[in-house]
Design a protein around this nucleic acid. Structure first.
Length: 599
RNA sequence: GGUCUCGUAGCUCAGCUGGAUAGAGCAACAGCCUUCUAAGCUGUAGGUCUUUGGUUCGAAUCCAAACGGGAUCACCA
């Protein structure tokens, strides 16, 4: 919450307590909203909650409250207007001017929370390249890591790479059968795409083989299990688990190709990690915890020796934790990794950025760890996000309906170039500068597009409509920033350590409405970050940056900075736009988006 | 079928810890560049907030039910 609102609430509380000593009040009883645009004032105290309590008419309370506030805090409250149960407060212009001056270019106060947080995101499979849906995961994880850091937490960014399993074996089989030793080097195909191509190839052949078996009279369900290529893949997985040298070598080879490809994509995206976990190292973890759980009697064995947990008292089912042959299942590995993370880093919180299709799985994981008495259980938090869908439905890599991440990045950068050229804005840039600019605009648009909606909600992406560079976009915000930088260049005012006249600013008495709007938004920034962190919601930051850029544009259109009426006004406006530029830059950088100084 | 989740303008989304006449962007229409970047600004039009009940001084927001989407309920990961 904005500090100004907190201050206002405290003032209201003080006045209420003094005016109605026979009652007791608390801060959370006081509702303060932003005043609707059609009324005068900036913030509004809602009076209805007090009507019943005080047995007075709203207007009586309002008049009492308003006049006392104005009298007691003349430097803060300029005026009040009472409109049918709403007390609209006008904040003193001087108060806002002082706020801007005193907060100007102040680094955010270094808070330390002593909280250590791990955030796991990306976590790709190594059998195919990243697609559009993965981008949402990556951007969300990276943005949340940055946002959590602003709250003083120590953040560890982790990537758990799913580098083993039947899906990799499928790519391997298809490669062995059909690739004729093709490599990224020999084909010029990016490693992750090459491996992904053979994953698709596998599925094509698999479908053919199933169809053939069906044609020869086999039932579909059986055919799906008996297709030769699938049997080969399963046999390969077994060889992998038995540590067969050739299998491991090919596996490593193909994974390395994929990592090369991922590395390139991550670098373009500006996504990074502090720690990698590999499932080939972690998939055997968790068995010890299961053994412990058996001893404690939390888990039980069935006749076939498989190990289970009964969650029926929690409204869930029985869940398998170890197969009858003693091998681990997916959740066994998760149990082990959760403990490993916790032990390695003494985590207070462990966040998993995973799509909402795994809500049930994550719920079960946390519950099991909790029942096993593992201390890591409490800190587990599933940052569940909705899937990105096409207008035709879900993306399926097996069916080739995915929007490839690398393609999308290329397209966005090309779009940025096209629109920049069409707008005739390329002059004065070197080739390198233009390349950087197109990347900033293209990637910015992509990131913003995926981060601007509430993570919890699934979103629909229509490739045909592509991504716009107008309106509610990163480009809009970048443009506002570039405009400010342009003014500063013309006025010969430094961006970072400007020489401004503090006394002149403080001598200014009144603000225009558009100026006030910008200051009020600037004042909300810190509170907004706290909200974004608490709600795990980067879209709040995106939304805020857009609003701030919009308020700046409105101000810019209505008032001249270079030709302000007075020196005081000009100085104030320089303070205002510089602080706006820095705030936009900071906010956007939390989303992983750069803001150019010219575009 | 059980559990979870979503349903707001033609489209994509805000608003949801209850508060005033429900907001943006895109698309449509009408204006604004001899003055700091028009990737911008201003305005018009567009809504039974899926429906029905309930709680309340007050409901898009909370509760219940219905209808309609989606996810999940694997010895896959």
């Amino acid at each position: 919450m904005s500090q100004l609102v907190v201050t206002l609430k405290k003032c209201v509380l003080e006045v209420l307590t003094a005016s109605y000593p026979e009652h007791s009040f608390s801060l959370d009883q006081i509702t303060v909203n932003e005043t609707k645009a059609e009324f005068e004032g900036e913030y509004t105290v809602v009076l209805f909650p007090f009507v019943k309590l005080l047995k007075c008419k709203p207007d009586e309370i309002g008049t009492q409250l308003g006049s006392t506030l104005q009298a007691q805090f003349p430097d803060f409250i300029a005026r009040y207007q009472l409109v049918s149960g709403f007390l609209n407060m006008s904040i003193q212009d001087r108060y806002l001017i002082h706020y801007l001056q005193s907060s100007f270019l102040q680094a955010p106060t270094a808070v330390t929370s002593n909280k250590r947080v791990m955030i796991e995101y990306s976590s790709p499979n190594t059998n195919k390249p990243l697609h559009f849906g993965h981008l949402r995961n990556n951007f969300l994880g990276a943005a949340m890591a940055s946002i959590l850091k602003t709250q003083g937490h120590e953040v560890v960014k982790a990537n758990l790479i799913n580098d083993r399993g039947i899906h990799i074996c499928k790519s391997m089989i298809a490669w062995m059968r059909y690739a004729n030793q093709a490599t990224p080097a020999s084909t010029g195909i990016k490693g992750d795409h090459l491996v992904g191509d053979y994953y698709v190839k596998f599925n094509d052949i698999y479908k053919e083989e199933v169809a053939q078996l069906k044609a020869s009279g086999m039932e579909e369900a059986l055919a799906e299990k008996q297709a030769p290529i699938l049997l080969e893949a399963q046999a390969l997985l077994l060889k992998w688990e038995q540590d067969d040298a050739d299998t491991r070598a090919l596996w490593k080879q193909m994974n390395d190709w994929v990592y090369e490809g991922f590395k390139a994509t991550y670098e373009r995206l500006g996504i990074s990690f502090d720690q990698y976990y590999y499932e080939s190292n972690t998939y055997l973890l968790g068995k010890a915890i299961i053994e412990e759980g058996l001893k404690k009697g939390v888990l039980f064995k069935k006749e076939d020796n498989s190990v289970w947990i009964d969650l029926s008292n929690d409204g869930l089912d029985q869940k398998l934790l170890l197969r009858g042959d003693g091998t681990a299942v997916y959740i066994t590995q998760d149990i082990g990794t959760a403990k490993l993370k916790y032990d390695e880093h003494q985590l207070n919180q462990s966040i998993y950025v995973i799509a909402d299709e795994q809500n049930y799985h994550m719920q079960v994981l946390k519950l099991i760890l909790s029942k096993l008495g593992e201390p890591c259980a409490d800190g587990i938090f599933h940052l569940s996000y909705g899937m990105v869908e096409l207008p035709s439905g879900r993306m399926k890599s097996r069916e080739g309906t995915v929007v490839d991440a690398d393609d999308m990045i290329d397209e966005m950068i090309a779009l940025a170039q096209k629109q920049t050229e069409e707008a005739g804005k390329t002059s004065g840039f070197t080739e390198d500068e233009l390349a950087t600019l197109y990347k900033q605009i293209g990637l910015g648009a992509l990131k913003f597009y995926l981060l601007r909606v509430d993570p919890k909600k699934k979103m629909i992406f229509d490739p045909k409509e592509s991504i716009d560079l107008h309106g509610y976009t990163a480009t809009f915000i970048q443009y506002a920033h570039a405009r400010i930088c342009s003014i500063l260049r013309k006025e010969c005012v430094a961006y970072d350590a400007p020489q401004l006249n503090k006394e002149a600013v403080l001598s200014l008495a009144t603000l225009a409405k558009a100026e006030k709007q910008v200051v009020l938004l600037l004042e909300q920034y810190d509170g907004l970050l706290t909200a974004a962190a608490n709600e795990y919601n980067p879209s709040l930051v995106a939304n805020y940056c857009f609003q701030l850029a919009q308020a700046f544009n409105t101000f810019y259109d209505a008032h001249s900075i270079a030709h302000a009426d007075t020196e005081a006004q000009k100085q104030f406006r320089l303070y205002l736009i510089i602080q706006t530029a820095h705030t936009l830059k900071r906010g956007m950088s939390l989303l992983g988006i750069e803001v150019p100084s010219r575009m």
